[in-house]
Design a protein around this nucleic acid. Sequence first.
DNA 1: ACGGTTATTGAGCAAGTGCTCAATCGTGTC
DNA 2: GACACGATTGAGCACTTGCTCAATAACCGT
Lengths: 195, 195
Amino acid sequence: MPDPVPPATDRQSRLVEATIELLLEGGLRAVTTRAVTQRAGVGTGLLNHYFRWPELRALAWAQIFEAVARDQFAQADDPEAALERYFATAFTPDARRFWHLWLEATELAASDDFMQAAFRKASAQARTGLADLLAAGAAQGVWRLADPQATALRLGALYDGLAGLLLSPAQILDADQAEAHLRKAFALECEAPTG
Amino acid sequence: MPDPVPPATDRQSRLVEATIELLLEGGLRAVTTRAVTQRAGVGTGLLNHYFRWPELRALAWAQIFEAVARDQFAQADDPEAALERYFATAFTPDARRFWHLWLEATELAASDDFMQAAFRKASAQARTGLADLLAAGAAQGVWRLADPQATALRLGALYDGLAGLLLSPAQILDADQAEAHLRKAFALECEAPTG
DNA sequence: ACGGTTATTGAGCAAGTGCTCAATCGTGTC
DNA sequence: GACACGATTGAGCACTTGCTCAATAACCGT
């Protein structure tokens, strides 16, 4: 996971940075107004001078996601390499941490309008990224897929589920097994007779 | 989702009931000591007389899960019917509500030992339920699966992912589409050439 | 009746949350 | 130098959380 923002000097940007840092380190529970202002080296009142709290939280989350999305499906011109990269990096510790944040965002989005807006946008990006990749590969004849869109959805959902299993306290999978399952599922989608 | 417990008269059981009710109605956020004691028609102090709060919370959650698990893979003697039932009821509103609770439990289990114990047990039950079902069907020749255990894991993970998409604020799927994807994934697992 | 054990209550505590606001500081303008 | 105005502070408010504890009620065996 790359640094989502370049280091900033002004205190407004420092607040966003601090929120992102804490979000990545400890998830939503670690992110409070006091924790953020303290991390930013700033008085508690300044946060409310520049932001509303839900607004800042959603802003930080959106920046994290954009940085990840920017990376995840970078070289879409070579579908085979891009997919290989997707599989290889699917269950790294960074990816898992990010997935945890995603999970927390899902819940928060139910009651927080700022978060919901950010979530909608991020969700759309994530799905079209994989779908475009699979469609490109199918068009180039790298693999055969009856319905790349549907395969992307299933693969994405499987990814979520596997990440969840990986994260759950009941240790069922390790990262390698999860990756193998994801690859296997893709293989099944490819070998299937068209219909 | 059936009533997880028969109606009780003594106040100790009423506290558990009230916790379950609130859990099902509004999720973890709706379940506070005050809300529970009020729902149970009981003074706030009584809760701590009988339980520690994390203990009661985990207890209620465990009872909900057991009731669901008892139902989900009931008629395992007829694998085909049981699987059909699994698909048909996978994404009902009740199932979705339950999945939301499951999600919250995942997060809570990270920091709550009582919850973690309950989660481990529940998680094991859920996985073996589907795995046994698929294995039984394979043994009876109802379907051909190279590795029922692995298929169960993938199908379970896909279910989690689809349920997550269904729950997410970005409306991508409806319940029928999710069910179709789950069935399609199972079909792919079956048609695959052995190897 | 009595004594003792348990059940039960609710005011209140301590900790934590987001947020306010009068007061200061800093800096540029005329 | 005086003024204005945004930046900045932190004590404090209002609220919520789980939990305590002295006081009371209810029950039961003797």
